[in-house]
């Protein structure tokens, strides 16, 4: 992979080289810099086994069991790791047709997923079919812009969740795509779709200002990019503030590296999506320091 370093401004680069010396001084007094690893998947679509060796497009790639090995080795390297999924867990192989999503949820639990948001295909056996499989999931479902009040999922899906790893507060919220036209009404029933930008503004305000989260992550199943006015991850990033990372899905976009874009305040936002079918695992590493060591926007992004 091609690595590129974005230095947001030249003073930051200067500060960086300066930190070395300061680091030596402060290390004996200070808690060391924090390191948080975010691992993520999207649109796995019931791809539990690797693609066969004779597959026309993805020979020998993917597989939950290999993903487990990889995740465990990363967790050994950094226990301060979150594992997240951006939806469309269901539908795509006979595993779903035969077992209705039971195996997908059981395996994600064994992999110790922390949370997932909901994709349109997670409604494929109806909201009742999804509800029936929830007991197999030992991780949270987070969706902020689907109102499930008048459905069987009422109270079972979280608006947001805050994780604390090594003293770092990480707020995670979820955004789903408009279901009308994608999922038949008989499947999503009384689920209400709320405007993702408005909800994002509301929740990020809460996570950043009230809850004082150090990192804010959006699990999005909106899609990476549309040429139309339809809301996508790029537009979401530009129209909001206080999101550090958008983990995307739905469009099955293979990004060679995470996209770096600007938010409403001109601050950097990362967007990543890992294609589909569990072919890739996304990995984002955040390094955090005491704020007074560096200027607020003096962050280096290596992707």
């Amino acid at each position: 992979m091609k690595r590129r370093t974005f230095i947001q401004n030249t003073t930051a680069a200067g500060v960086f080289t300066g930190i070395g010396g300061l680091g030596l001084l402060s290390s004996s007094f200070a808690s060391p810099a924090k390191h948080i690893t975010i691992l993520h998947t999207n649109d796995v679509h019931s791809h539990i086994e690797p693609f066969p060796a004779d597959d026309a497009k993805y020979p020998n790639l993917g597989g939950v069991s290999r993903r487990y090995t990889l995740i465990e080795s990363i967790r050994k390297e950094n226990p301060n790791t979150l594992l997240l999924d951006a939806g469309d867990i269901f539908q795509g192989t006979p595993f779903f047709n035969f077992y209705g999503g039971e195996l997908e949820f059981k395996l994600m639990s064994k992999l110790n997923y922390d949370a997932a948001t909901l994709g349109n295909h997670d409604f494929d056996n109806g909201i009742d079919g999804l509800n029936a499989q929830l007991p197999h999931a030992e991780f949270s479902f987070i969706s902020s812009n689907y109102d499930f009040k008048n459905t069987v999922l009422d109270g079972k899906v979280k608006n947001y969740q805050i994780y604390t790893k090594d003293g770092v507060k990480i707020g995670v919220f979820g955004l789903g795509i408009e279901l009308d036209g994608l999922v038949s009404k008989k499947n999503y029933k009384e689920t209400k779709y709320l405007n993702p930008v408005e909800i994002a503004q509301e929740i990020t305000q809460k996570l950043k200002q009230e809850e004082q989260c150090d990192l804010v992550i959006c699990l999005s199943h909106l899609g990476y990019k549309y040429d139309s006015d339809k809301i996508d991850d790029l537009k979401l990033a530009e129209q909001t503030k206080d999101i550090d990372l958008i983990i995307g899905g739905h469009t099955h976009t293979f990004l060679e590296k995470p996209t770096v874009t600007n938010n409403l305040e001109g601050k950097k936002v990362l967007i990543n999506q890992t294609g589909w079918a569990g072919i890739n695992l996304g990995r984002i590493d955040f390094y955090l320091d005491e704020q007074n060591n560096i200027s607020a926007d003096g962050m280096a992004i290596e992707v």
């Binding site: 810099a33 990889l70 770092v168 072919i279 955090l288 005491e290 704020q291 992004i301 290596e302």
Partner: peptide, 25 residues
């Protein structure tokens, strides 16, 4: 009084057959 992001690294890791699968799974 707070901490801030100093550096972010991001990448995709391809799940190939060079990663051994887990027997129990």
């Amino acid at each position: 009084k707070s901490i801030a992001i100093s550096k972010i690294e991001g990448k995709e890791i391809k799940i190939t057959d060079s990663i051994t699968s887990n027997k129990d799974l």
